[in-house]
Amino acid sequence: MLKVAFATADRMRVDQHFGAAAGFAIYQLDGERAQLVELAEFPEESMDGNEGKLAAKIAALEGCAAVYCLAVGGSAVRQLLAVGIQPLRLDAPEPIDALLAKLRTAMRAGGVPWIDKALKKTADGDCFARMAAEGWQE
């Protein structure tokens, strides 16, 4: 399972710059289906000169493997990567449903490095959680 966020004002399309996003639609998905699990919304802010706004947006994406947006600044890219979130920039607005379909296909087929890495991390985490629940000790 992956959690992926989409910078969106209308909840239908990726249509926002990361730093100025009015909100994020956060989906959980596997190779077969996707489900909206959260809507994170933010007050209107200016795009420039407010680095502090990034912390709240990045915190809202905790647990996400990636975030899709129309643009993302260098500082935001560094901060996102530091917490394990892959920023993905689109050239033009795209429907979230179409992106989810592409993601599900990529999850099944493999070969997309950030998806493969995120799925491995999720599988490893599940393995360790099971081991701890079983009382395994080193």
Rank of each mutant, 00 (worst) to 15 (best):
L61H: 06
L54Y: 09
L119I: 05
P95G: 12
L2F: 04
D97W: 00
C127I: 12
A82C: 01
L99V: 07
F18E: 03
A9H: 11
G23V: 02
A59G: 08
V77W: 05
D91P: 11
M1I: 04
V67S: 08
D97V: 11
W136H: 06
K120W: 03
R130Q: 14
A66F: 05
S75R: 15
E134Y: 08
Y27I: 03
C69L: 07
M131F: 14
A60V: 10
D126S: 12
V4Y: 06
G23P: 02
Q79M: 13
V67K: 11
D15T: 02
E51G: 05
L36W: 08
K120T: 09
P95L: 15
A101K: 13
L2V: 03
C69F: 08
A71T: 07
L70V: 02
W136C: 01
Q86P: 00
A56G: 07
D97K: 15
D126F: 04
A82K: 10
P93T: 04
A133Q: 14
G63H: 07
V77I: 15
Q35V: 13
R13D: 06
L29A: 15
I96F: 05
D124M: 13
A132R: 14
A7Y: 11
A65P: 04
V37D: 07
R130K: 14
A25G: 09
E32I: 06
R108E: 10
L99H: 07
E134K: 12
S46E: 15
L29W: 10
G125H: 04
Q16V: 00
A123I: 06
P95I: 00
D30G: 13
A118T: 02
A66L: 08
A5F: 04
A71D: 12
C127M: 14
E38S: 13
G135W: 04
R89W: 00
G110I: 10
A7N: 07
D91F: 05
E51W: 07
W114A: 07
V37W: 10
G111A: 09
M47F: 11
A106S: 14
G111P: 06
R33G: 00
P95E: 15
A71P: 01
A118Q: 03
G49W: 12
E44M: 12
M47V: 11
R11L: 06
K53Q: 15
L81R: 12
D30R: 14
V77H: 05
P87Q: 04
G52C: 08
Q137P: 00
L80A: 02
A60I: 10
R78E: 14
V14K: 05
L119F: 01
G49I: 12
D116T: 04
D30K: 13
V4K: 09
K120D: 08
A9T: 09
D124T: 11
A106T: 01
A82L: 06
A7H: 10
A9N: 08
Y27G: 03
R89F: 00
Q16N: 03
V37I: 15
I26Y: 03
G110A: 10
A106Q: 14
A55T: 12
A71L: 08
E32A: 13
R33C: 02
A129L: 11
E138D: 13
L99R: 10
A40F: 07
D91R: 12
K3F: 00
A76S: 12
K53S: 15
C127F: 15
A132G: 00
I58F: 04
K53V: 15
L39M: 14
